[in-house]
Computed example of a mutant assay.
Amino acid sequence: MGSAPIAKDNPLGAYLRDRRERLDPAAFGLPMTRRRTPGLRREEVAQRAHVSPTWYTWLEQGRGGAPSEVVLERIATALLLTDVEREHLFQLAFGRAPEVRAPEAVGITPRLQRVLDALTLSPAIVKTTLWDVVGWNRAATAVLTDYSALPPEKRNIVKLFFSNPRVRAAQDDWESVARFVVAAFRADSARVADTAKVEALVREVSALSPEFETFWREHDVQAFGEGVKRLRHPVAGLIAFEYSAFSVDQRPDLGIVVYQPATRDDEDSVRRLLDLQELGAT
């Protein structure tokens, strides 16, 4: 396979070639002799990606049809792309990011935990695209749920919302919030590549709650975004929050939700709950 020039209007091909030429053949156990160009040969990448060498050559040269998502995933794997490089590859090929690959719910980095901890009066959580809670701060424990007291498989917002009586009782308008939760979860879950995990969670929560099953069948979608949330805490009473959702850079499977007390009185309510928490009274 020759080193044919790549058209200037073919950024996908240019990027593939650049990534290919950065790879060390020796790391793959390939012979280093008789190589006129750096990196892997096109046919070697094609073999690793289980595609035709001719088709892969055409892809780099901007000829032929566009790749499918499945094939592009195999090429990304063959080229050992990082998550950021994989996302860039999909942006070049399709003009959008790839579907999110949802890992198992694991902890967050110490740096991200420090960000949460700095929000002393604002309950904040980190959730996955499957809405597993993998990070939280003291205010979230005092106001929302003591996630540390739950086993990891129970730290799921959808499960808690539809199966935990305390979480349900805390909602100022349960049905309205429940419909929002289902619609926002549906929008997030559509980004998860492993649809089997989504289906398993939907089956589990449907078995726990006929209401969830009904709302899920309505197929509504909604962005989490930002808004106002009112909670009826069993100790502090009604507390209002302005909430905002943020993505975590380089972790498309994670999002942060921050609940900012809406007024001074609401701040005081959170502060009292934190004081009680310190005393072990909540």
Results as ranks from 00 to 15, higher is better:
R166P: 09
R166K: 07
R166E: 15
R166W: 14
R166S: 15
V167K: 09
V167T: 12
V167F: 02
V167N: 13
R168G: 08
R168I: 10
R168D: 00
R168Q: 13
R168W: 02
A169F: 05
A170M: 15
A170E: 06
A170Q: 14
D173Y: 03
D173S: 04
W174Q: 04
W174N: 00
E175L: 11
E175P: 09
S176A: 13
V177P: 02
V177C: 09
V177S: 07
V177M: 12
V177R: 00
A178E: 06
A178H: 00
A178I: 09
A178P: 10
R179C: 10
R179Q: 08
R179A: 03
F180P: 02
V181A: 00
V181M: 04
V181R: 04
V181F: 13
V182A: 12
V182Y: 00
V182S: 11
A183K: 00
A183V: 08
F185E: 03
F185A: 14
F185Q: 03
R186V: 06
R186C: 04
A187S: 10
A187V: 07
A187Q: 15
A190P: 06
A190W: 11
A190Q: 12
A190H: 13
R191V: 00
R191Q: 06
R191A: 12
R191F: 01
V192W: 03
V192Q: 03
V192S: 08
A193Y: 11
D194Y: 14
D194S: 10
D194P: 01
D194R: 09
T195K: 13
T195E: 15
T195W: 13
T195Y: 14
A196T: 12
A196H: 06
A196E: 12
A196G: 12
A196I: 11
K197V: 03
K197S: 02
K197Q: 01
K197D: 00
K197W: 05
V198Q: 01
E199D: 06
E199L: 15
E199W: 07
A200Q: 14
L201N: 14
L201E: 13
L201H: 12
V202C: 15
V202F: 08
V202P: 02
R203T: 04
R203F: 06
R203Y: 12
R203G: 01
R203V: 14
E204S: 10
S206V: 05
S206Y: 10
A207Q: 13
A207N: 07
A207H: 09
L208P: 05
L208Q: 03
S209I: 12
S209G: 10
S209A: 11
S209V: 08
S209H: 03
S209N: 05
P210M: 10
E211H: 08
E211T: 12
E211R: 00
E211A: 11
F212E: 08
F212G: 10
F212R: 07
F212K: 08
F212A: 13
F212N: 05
E213Q: 10
E213A: 15
E213L: 09
E213P: 05
E213H: 13
T214P: 03
T214D: 08
F215T: 04
W216C: 05
W216F: 04
R217C: 07
R217H: 07
